[in-house]
């Protein structure tokens, strides 16, 4: 139990299958033995193709689904524990892909208040949390706006505010940036990093965008309901061919360095950062010049 308390998310041999008529592939196992631990304060990216089980996994963490076998612990609480269901859902706050189908309030403020109201907080406390959450995502000026007049990126900021107003331990984003343009994506990533570094909120960011995943501390790759790779971004993205086979991309910088390495060039593996790559390439090119001069 000591170990589980340190881990905000812990799953043990989790399997899940949708019923005979539900889910993307009826009857098939959507998750097939997932055991992993996420420590408090980690920033984890979860990637995988469509049908790899990412979304199912996210829903198990929020107790929207319960495992067919195995156990999911959120902050040490078994998600099957009906008594503590609301605690699980508060701790593992979830943001979904489409902002239009998760914003409930007719004004930004009302929407952010929805979660705290469900928790049964005093009006005064709710008001304080709403104000605070809107400030943290930089949307305080829009408190009274109707959500449907905001841009997609701003709507997602509102959705995130609605979750952090519940003071979660872990923020789970299920492809929350997939429908946004580059600037809005960057804003969201910026916010997530800030919440993670400054406030210690654990982030589990599910994404198709490998450049985003490269910004995480840890990347988990799911394939066919299992964890295929799990490690630092530099380790994971050095497995270019495996990732390709699973239908995934790798960040362009990683792809370039892997391809050059494949042709025998002297480059360190796991390059992801542009500046680091420029330095390495510089060395590679200068090295060749040097080599000739000495011969």
């Amino acid at each position: 139990m000591v170990a589980t308390k340190k881990h905000i998310v812990e799953t043990q041999g989790v399997e899940f299958s949708y019923g005979a008529c539900g889910g993307p592939v009826p009857g098939a196992k959507a998750l097939d033995g997932i055991s992993l631990r996420i420590e408090k304060g980690e920033f984890v990216a979860l990637v995988g193709g469509n049908g790899s089980g990412k979304t199912t996994f996210a829903r198990l963490l929020n107790a929207l689904l319960l495992p067919t076998s195995g156990t999911v612990y959120i902050d040490g609480i078994d998600t099957k524990d009906k008594e503590r269901l609301w605690e699980v859902r508060r701790v593992a706050g979830m943001v979904f892909q489409n902002p239009d189908s998760q914003i409930i309030g007719t004004t930004v403020e009302e929407d952010v208040a929805f979660g705290p109201e469900n928790l049964g907080l005093e009006p005064e406390e709710t008001r304080r949390r709403v104000r605070e959450a809107l400030r943290r995502v930089g949307m305080e000026r829009h408190a009274d706006s109707p959500p449907h007049l905001l841009s997609g990126g701003r709507k997602q900021l509102v959705s995130i505010a609605g979750i952090i107003a519940m003071e979660p331990g872990c923020l789970i984003l299920d492809e929350a940036t997939a429908l946004l343009d580059p600037t809005a994506r960057e804003e969201i990533m910026e916010l997530l990093r800030r919440l993670n570094r400054e406030e210690g909120i654990t982030v589990l960011h599910i994404t198709h965008d490998m450049e985003e995943a490269a910004l995480a501390d840890r990347v988990i790759v799911m394939h066919a309901g299992r964890v295929a790779l799990d490690g630092k971004p530099s380790e994971v993205f050095s497995r270019a061919s495996l990732l390709r086979e699973m239908g995934l991309d790798i960040p362009q910088v990683a792809e370039l360095s892997e391809r050059l390495r494949g042709e025998g060039f002297d480059l360190p593996s796991g390059l992801l950062d542009t500046d680091a790559a420029v330095a390495a390439l510089e060395r590679m090119l200068a090295g060749s010049r040097h080599a000739v001069h000495t011969t």
Binding site: D181, P182, Q252, L256, T274, A277, V278, L281, E282
Partner: peptide
């Protein structure tokens, strides 16, 4: 508000 491909940015730095 757009990003050039990462590779373009890398090459222009190089």
């Amino acid at each position: 508000g757009l990003e050039a491909p990462r590779i373009t940015i890398l090459m222009s730095k190089l």
